[in-house]
């Protein structure tokens, strides 16, 4: 079995350079690659294009990279929860491309499946359609959307093995599996790294072939954005 294990986040991201395009897994703050984000902030790479459903909050997630002005462009579906983001956007320091969430996910999927483009009805007749090819299939209009082309995909999984196989937990799965398939180089950080053979092949969500580097992360904060509870009667 090919061994994909690296020592940690610093080694995993060591060849990410200024101007690279990164995919970062997660939905809100759920399932984000916390260790790699910390390492990217430490490394100080700049002019990054980040493809991620959201942009974190002011002091966590991608928000940490925004604070250091490392991001040139965000490609996201929803970016509401971040005041520093808003400031950079309004001052023109940051470029933002907002695209429908399903389009974002499926453009990742297309990349991982080796397909150059997809057709989706999302955004037909709206400003999202501007400049895009429209095709009619069976009487309905669809937009042609291109597969993403990302230098690196950085994902977070629950468990992984030394062969790079990944298992995600609960809704922290979200964009992680499709992004894992889409990176030219895919980096996976996991909460628990085990020897190849310890995970049941039937339970693998992402086969190791898609993962180039894997390490066990440390100190996961797993911050909750909207803590909502009910009381016991």
């Amino acid at each position: 079995m090919i061994n994909k294990v690296v020592s940690g986040a610093d080694e995993a991201i060591s060849d990410i350079e200024n101007g690279n395009t990164l995919m970062l897994g997660g939905f809100g703050l759920c399932g984000i690659p916390e260790n790699c984000i910390t390492a990217l902030v430490k490394k100080g790479v700049k002019d990054l294009t980040c493809i991620s459903n959201n942009a974190g909050v002011d002091d966590f997630g991608i928000g940490l990279m925004l604070q250091q002005r490392q991001v040139k462009k965000m490609i996201s579906s929803y970016v509401g929860e971040n005041a520093e983001f808003e400031r950079q956007l309004l001052s023109g320091e940051l470029e933002v491309e907002l695209i429908p969430q399903g389009t974002l996910a499926t453009r990742c999927m297309a990349s991982g499946y080796g397909m150059p483009a997809i057709f989706t009805p999302a955004g037909v007749g709206t400003e999202v359609a501007e400049g895009k090819e429209v095709r009619n299939f069976n009487g309905k209009d669809y937009l042609m959307e291109y597969a993403f082309d990302a230098d690196f995909a950085i994902v977070k999984a629950w468990k992984g093995d030394t062969a790079g196989n990944l298992i995600f937990r609960s809704t922290s799965r979200n964009f992680n599996p499709v992004m894992a398939m889409a990176g030219k180089i895919t980096i996976a950080e996991v909460e628990e790294l085990v020897e190849a053979g310890e995970l049941d092949p039937d339970h693998i969500h992402t086969p190791g072939v898609f993962v180039h580097r894997i390490f066990q992360g440390a100190g996961y904060e797993k911050r909750i954005e909207q803590r909502t509870v009910r009381t016991k009667n």
Binding site: F27, G28, N53, Q101, L104, A105, S170, V178, I224
Partner: peptide
């Protein structure tokens, strides 16, 4: 923290629930 809805609120599952990735969801 790993179990939230689209509004980023903490939630629960029910008997018969299933979990999947974003591409499959759409």
């Amino acid at each position: 923290a790993d179990l939230i809805n689209a509004g980023k609120q903490t939630i629960t599952t029910l008997p018969g629930s299933s979990i999947f990735d974003s591409a499959l969801s759409f």
